[in-house]
Every structure is written in structure tokens, then in C-alpha cells.
Amino acid sequence: MSRFPIGHVLGFLFSLLLTFAAAGIALKTSLSFKTIMWIIGGLAVVQAGLQLTMFMHVNEGEDRHSQWINILYGVFLAVIIVAGSIWVMSFGGTHSH
């Protein structure tokens, strides 16, 4: 590809921005621990999505639909297994071990 890789540069800049935002929130604010975890966790998910589309060719090629299906299925499984286990083993949130 001879064109200027504008997508990659934008992706790189956005990744930097999101990383510094996460670091800033963790180090420079006085929010509660729980809030910080939720915010930087959210930023991490956004950045993962960004990198998938900008760098990891997820929207390219004849397999792009199946790649998204795979990712969504993986997320579905992870949520079911992890969140489901926590929910069940804490007896629906009523019981703390």
C-alpha cells in the first residue's frame, strides 16, 4: 500500500490518548478505588476495540464477518463463565464468601 497510512496513525494517536487518560485517572485523581477500576476497565475495552479495527484487520478480508462472530462469541462465553460463576457462587449477590 503506497498511500499514507492515516488509519494507523489515527489509531496510534487514539491509543496513546486512551492510555494517558487511564494513567491520568489512576494517578492524578482522588476518585474511589472502585470508580477508578471501572473507568480504566472501560477505557481498556474501548482501546481493545480500537486496536482490533485499526491494526488487527478485523474488518478486512472475506472472513470479516466470522471474525466478529468469533469475538462476540468469545465475549459471550467469558461473560457467562466469569460473571455467571460469580453471581451463582455469591448466591445471587445475597451471600458473601
Binding site: W87, V88, F91, G92, G93, T94, H95
Partner: peptide
């Protein structure tokens, strides 16, 4: 019968 409660 683990008794995880009504919601679960």
C-alpha cells in the same frame, strides 16, 4: 438444592 436463592 445448593440453595442459591430465588433469583438464581
Amino acid at each position: 438444592t445448593m440453595g442459591a436463592g430465588a433469583a438464581v
